[in-house]
Structure formats: structure tokens, C-alpha cells
Amino acid sequence: MTHISVEINGQRVERDIDPRVLLVHFLRDDLGMTGTHWGCDTTNCGTCAVLLDGKPVKSCTVLAVMADGHAVRTVEGLEVGGELDPIQQGFMEEHGLQCGFCTPGMLVTGRALLDANPHPTEGEIREAISGQICRCTGYSTIVRSIQWAADHPVGITNGQAQKEEVTA
């Protein structure tokens, strides 16, 4: 067993774990954080994406011990104080999901994209999510959802969608 200390969504978590435990299983099975989905298990589908020190990675191909001393942000960490992140609101506004299986990975990857590039082109959005598979939407609504979040960086407040030019 190896002792690890990982900051998960701003909270320090310490555990003794078997080194072969993957980050996705550590999150889901040891911590009960099932927001991160476990899909193909072969680094292809991207639904297990989490942010490792702010960068999206596939948590089925990262050992939990490799996250020791680092910061992990999962889909559960997007909502702050009961307010959905604008990226989550965008997926609601633009119907960015049907079955929802790929959604956690799409959300955190979209969040990382907008953190690095607040005004991405459609091409940049499609490139950013190219490591993830959606079998419902044909991607168009996901792209529109991320665009919505880029256009509404503070999201919906008091029932009103705040466009950037209003708040800038």
C-alpha cells in the first residue's frame, strides 16, 4: 500500500492505496465520487476525463499514486455554492447531452478549454473535445453548449442569462 495525499475539488484527501489502482477507480470506488464515468477503460472514449493540475487527462490511464501531491478537479467540482458552472448551464441551454454518459468528460474538458482560451473558435472547441466520444449528439449541440458558456462567462444569475457584454 502507498500513502497518497491528493487535493480533490479543493479538499485534501489522504488514503493508503494499492499502486495499481487507477485514478478513475480511486475516485469512484474509494471515494464514492461517481460523477466521473468509467467507460472504455482503454484511453479512447474520454468519459473518465478529470483535470489534473488544470489539464484534462483520461483517469483510466493515470494511476492514483501518480496524482499524489497534485490537484484533481472532477465534474463534482464544477458547481460552486449551489450555482452551476456556466459550462453546465450551457449544456442545459443548448441540449448538450442525451444519454449523459460522455457528459462529465465533456464538461471538465470544456471548462479547461475556456480557462485557457475564453473565446475559442468552433474549430478549437472541436479539437479540444476530439479525445472524447459522444454517440448521441453528433457533437453539434456539445459544441454549441461550450460556445454558450464562452458567451456567458458568468452564466445565469437570477434567472437571467448574462451575456458577456452586459457584465464586462
Binding site: A49, V57, S130
Partner: peptide
């Protein structure tokens, strides 16, 4: 690969 793999 893809952008997520390229991050690692």
C-alpha cells in the same frame, strides 16, 4: 493520439 493523451 488526442489532446488529453498529449497532456500526459
Amino acid at each position: 493520439a488526442d489532446p488529453l493523451v498529449r497532456n500526459r
